[in-house]
Design a protein around this nucleic acid. Sequence first.
DNA 1: GTCTATAGGAGGATAGAC
DNA 2: GTCTATCCTCCTATAGAC
Lengths: 229, 229
Amino acid sequence: MIASRARGSLVMVDTREVSVYAGTTVFTRMPGGYRAGSLREIAQRVGMSEAGLLHHFKNKSTLLLAVLDHRDEQSRQIVNFDDADGVETLRALVKLARYNASIPGVIELFCTLSAEATSPSHPAHEYFLRRYEYVRESITVAFRRIADEGRLIREIDPYRAAVATTAMMDGLQVQWLLDPTSTDMADALAEFFRGYVRGYDLDALEQLLDARAAGSLVNGEGAGAVASL
Amino acid sequence: MIASRARGSLVMVDTREVSVYAGTTVFTRMPGGYRAGSLREIAQRVGMSEAGLLHHFKNKSTLLLAVLDHRDEQSRQIVNFDDADGVETLRALVKLARYNASIPGVIELFCTLSAEATSPSHPAHEYFLRRYEYVRESITVAFRRIADEGRLIREIDPYRAAVATTAMMDGLQVQWLLDPTSTDMADALAEFFRGYVRGYDLDALEQLLDARAAGSLVNGEGAGAVASL
DNA sequence: GTCTATAGGAGGATAGAC
DNA sequence: GTCTATCCTCCTATAGAC
């Protein structure tokens, strides 16, 4: 627990929670992100010593995982794969891509980290393995439903389509981060889906969802979390 | 210059050149790659002191750029965008993807580095900016030719198709590095092209190119360089 | 061109007091 | 739960001799 003054009144704050926020800030800051971010700085932001911080997280990797888990928890409140189905899921992903363009720092963390975590010894390796499996599985289900509705433009294996979709999202992020003028991630993704799904563009429906999504994203507590998808 | 014994005879080797090789080895080794790789180890591999190494490359970043430039020089000898045209270029990319699957270390370097280099202050930022522009431009030309031949399946802007292609290649790499069983990069890319190009699968032609490409890749001096594409 | 020596710093982590 | 003190490792880079 830490005592801090907010809006004039004394507030007790959970140290662990604050640390996760501070960790997020530091790890999402470029250049360097996780690797360059130091426990020293995080401790300083929390207003505590390094040793104090390490009492809660036994080392730097553990704190990283806590940060990632925290984002996931929030993501699930915003884009829930289990709720949506079929085309609706794809639309949500486009919406997500559009939103992501407003939080470059977080995107950069996930982009860099997922590349780094590629090696089995990286502290977040297991995390990303599970995450990609989950995302692919969810998108696979979406494509399977679209296929069942007979809306698939050409013969494709739902799983392969999911891999391609995931790849497209990741790849667009790299180009966009490097040069934001090079591509509009959301438009590019929508274009991609148009190649697979018959009648992907049902404008009225899309706009309805647009409005709904905009509302929830703006109000959503930790909307930034969506990036991790 | 450095004296070394190879095949029993005394050979003089250009130190700079050897340093670039050593740098490649160290920077492509995971985990950590460029960031984790130290001048200390590179110097040790070359068989000289850190100070000696820094005589040739004024700092670590400079050495990195030398490594990247060296790879590019070799790439150009293997996949030359200017030679191929239209569908042939796309096929070359698929071939490339297949080859890349045999050199995970190099792919990992480029994958990680392109994510890191996303921030303007990264030493390789300019390098990747130029590289992506070049690649997109080249692929744009290919799609433009395909469009001129009337082989485009649906209306798409050649530039957008190039962005999507680049994204697909990058994104597939991330998933593949994380879990090689998750996807076959080359197959996935070919599938992607099938959605754009009429008659992409002309088996005879493909096999002809297959053979030709296999030959040049196996014999090519620094075939690994292709990864940078 | 290459080496020795060393400056100068950052970062992760631990021990033990309070 | 938190702090002080401290250790140890590792790095980039420079100065100056050979």
